[in-house]
């Protein structure tokens, strides 16, 4: 691991953004597609590290209806065999807050392991918390 990559401690919180318009979260329940790898998720789905980014910032994105944010704990993920890796290099851009769950990659999206890992992530998010929805404009949170 390069020197400038900060390892993820077990007590770190992680944020997974969930678009409101997608219907993957209604505030009380999260649906598996919230953790489904997309075609560009070749090395794993993205999460943001609370150590480096506020929850409001993690909820920023282009969706007009805003986002929920599922809160996960790194140690709880690891206890269930879910790997987390810091991944600050985003196609040339650098974001120290960015990390990935490498097992959840698009190449294995139909595997039983991924279907079960998505269920694990839902359980952990529901146990910890799902915040929002946040509707962020250029001036900040509404």
């Amino acid at each position: 691991m390069p020197e400038d990559i900060v390892p993820i401690d077990d007590d770190e919180l992680l944020y997974r953004r969930i678009s409101v318009l997608s219907g993957w979260c209604d505030g009380s329940q999260v649906s598996p597609p919230a953790f489904h790898p997309q075609k560009h998720d070749k090395s794993g789905i993205s999460v943001f590290r609370a150590r480096f980014r506020s929850i409001e910032s993690a909820a920023t994105g282009p969706s007009p209806d805003g986002y929920f944010v599922a809160v996960l704990c790194a140690g709880e993920l690891r206890a269930r065999g879910i790997q987390i890796e810091p991944q600050p290099d985003l196609d040339g851009d650098y974001d120290v807050s960015h990390a990935e769950l490498p097992q959840l990659n698009t190449g294995r999206k139909k595997s039983p392991e991924i279907i079960q890992l998505k269920a694990e992530l839902i359980e952990l998010a529901m146990k910890r918390s799902v915040e929002g929805p946040f509707k962020i404009d250029a001036g900040g949170a509404e």
Binding site: S22, G23, W24, S31, P33, H36, P37, Q38, K39, K109
Partner: peptide, 10 residues
């Protein structure tokens, strides 16, 4: 009924 994030429906 929701999109699956990758072109599918669930």
């Amino acid at each position: 009924v929701v999109p699956d994030a990758d072109g599918g429906v669930v």
